[in-house]
Simulated scan of single mutants.
Amino acid sequence: MVMSKSGDPDEAMAIFEKMLDEGVEPTEVTIMEALHACADLGDHERGRFIHKLVDQLGLGTNVSVMNSLISMYAKSKKVDIAAGIFKNLQGKTLVSWNAMILGYAQNGCVNEAVNYFCEMRSQNIKPDSFTLVSVIPALADLSVLRQAKWIHGLVIRACLDKNVFVMTALVDMYAKCGAVHTARKLFDMMDERHVTTWNVMIDGYGTHGHGKAAVELFNEMRKGLIKPNNITFLCILSACSHSGLVEEGVRYFVIMKKEYSLEPAMDHYGAMVDLLGRAGRLNEAWDFIEKMPIEPGINVYGAMLGACKIHKNVELGGEGSEQTV
């Protein structure tokens, strides 16, 4: 029985369950595909059912299957169960360590992710690009520059300083640690950049109040081959908002749809209200909300309320708070 190749985890699970109903015994590959679908769905209940099936089929010593179980539990926010499986797993591979490090990082357990990474290295297991892309965001969350430099050194020694995914993670990490100039140096050194690379650098500038630098970089991006996406526009709108660059932000919101055919999402509308509101243009912000083509979400009214509090506008603030109740 072949699992769904359409990338639809619901369909994959439907096929898997039909297969079991027909009495066909799944192979280890089928089990791994089903666990992957459960991971995508974040469905640990069905994942637990497959875990029991793994035990019944005597696949508990199959490292590849157990790695899939670790990933499924970690993605389903059951990282403690994943850790238990990992601890008892004989013959751990690099994939096992990667699954556990990523699992901790994705669940906000940054110290555990870093500790596992250090333990892995103490056992002379060489990290690959996947390991580093998993652990670097955890270090970014800790925002300790000394540790940022330590992992950067490891990247160079592992000869992964030309890997676009690893380098993008490093740019993001340095920016989050406040070392924006170092982030830009790495960004400029990169031979290849993805849209995410541009996004994290623009966002890094914006977060630290370098609005003009964010605008310059965004304009540079627009001249190149890599097209901005929805996240790029969210980053640049936020950067304009934090630095009071209202006209630029308004212009970018217009070109988002006009030049790039990108439909603004609720977060973009919220960013626009924040942009106008922070600048004290409260009537414009309220007018913007009333003219929205979709029903405003709570984040939009929240941005309006926040702006009214900053500028002590009780009347408009009252209208905004009524909508958030």
Rank of each mutant, 00 (worst) to 15 (best):
L225K: 09
L276Y: 07
K309T: 13
A138Y: 07
G302H: 02
M66G: 15
G209D: 07
R157S: 05
L262K: 00
A12N: 04
A169S: 14
A113N: 02
Q56M: 12
G224S: 11
E290V: 03
V164S: 12
K75V: 10
A175D: 12
V314W: 08
S129V: 08
V2Q: 13
K176P: 08
E259D: 15
A307S: 04
K185T: 13
V171Q: 04
D43V: 00
Y301G: 09
I231W: 08
V166W: 09
I85H: 07
D80W: 14
V110Y: 15
K291L: 12
L41A: 01
V325L: 11
E319V: 09
D10W: 05
M120C: 11
G209I: 08
N67C: 11
L139M: 11
T27A: 02
G108S: 11
S4Y: 01
Q323G: 04
V95E: 04
V54K: 03
L139Y: 05
L94K: 11
F130M: 05
P293S: 03
V215E: 09
A303T: 02
I202S: 05
M66N: 15
T196I: 15
P137L: 00
C235H: 12
L262P: 08
C308P: 08
G209T: 00
Q56N: 15
N283L: 15
N124K: 14
V133Q: 01
